[in-house]
Amino acid sequence: MTLPRRTLLAATLAAPAVMPRGARAQGPWAPDRPVRLIVPFAPGGSQDVLGRLFAQQVSQQVGQNVVVENRAGAGGIIGAQEVARATPDGLTLLLTTAGQTTIAKAIGRRLTYDPVADFTPIIHLSDSPVALVTAPSLPPRDLQELLAYCRDARDPIPYGSTGIGTNTHLIMEELKARERLKVEHVPYRGAAAAFNDLAAGRIGLMFISVASVMAVSGAQMKVIGVTSRERFPPTPDVPTMIEGGLPGFEASIWTGLAGPKGLPAPIVARWNAEFARALQSELVTSRLPALGSTANGAGAEAFGTLLREDLDRWTRVAAPLNIQLE
Rank of each mutant, 00 (worst) to 15 (best):
L3A: 14
P4R: 13
R6P: 06
P20N: 12
G22V: 13
A23T: 13
R24C: 07
A25C: 07
A25T: 14
A30T: 15
P34W: 12
R36N: 08
L37K: 00
G51M: 03
R52A: 09
S59P: 07
Q61N: 10
Q61L: 14
V62P: 02
G63Q: 10
N70C: 13
N70L: 12
G75V: 03
G76T: 05
I78C: 01
Q81F: 01
E82P: 00
R85Q: 14
D89C: 02
D89R: 01
G90E: 02
T97A: 08
G99C: 07
Q100N: 12
L111Y: 08
D118C: 03
F119V: 01
I123E: 00
D127Y: 06
V133L: 07
A135M: 07
P136C: 11
S137P: 03
P140C: 07
R141G: 12
E145F: 09
D152N: 15
R154V: 15
I157W: 09
G160M: 13
S161K: 06
G163C: 10
I164N: 03
G165H: 06
G165K: 06
L170D: 01
M172L: 15
E173M: 10
L175V: 11
A177H: 10
A177E: 12
L181W: 04
E184L: 14
E184A: 12
R189E: 11
F195D: 07
A200M: 13
I203Y: 00
L205S: 04
M206L: 15
M206I: 13
F207C: 12
V216I: 14
A219R: 15
M221N: 01
K222D: 07
S228N: 12
R229G: 08
E230V: 15
E230A: 13
P233V: 14
P234A: 06
P234K: 06
V238Q: 08
W254S: 04
W254I: 10
T255H: 11
P260M: 03
G262F: 00
V268M: 01
W271T: 00
R277D: 11
R277I: 06
S281V: 11
L291N: 02
G292N: 04
S293K: 15
T294S: 12
T294E: 10
A295H: 08
G299Q: 04
G299R: 05
A302T: 13
L306C: 02
L307E: 01
L307N: 01
E309R: 15
T315Y: 04
A318L: 09
L325W: 08
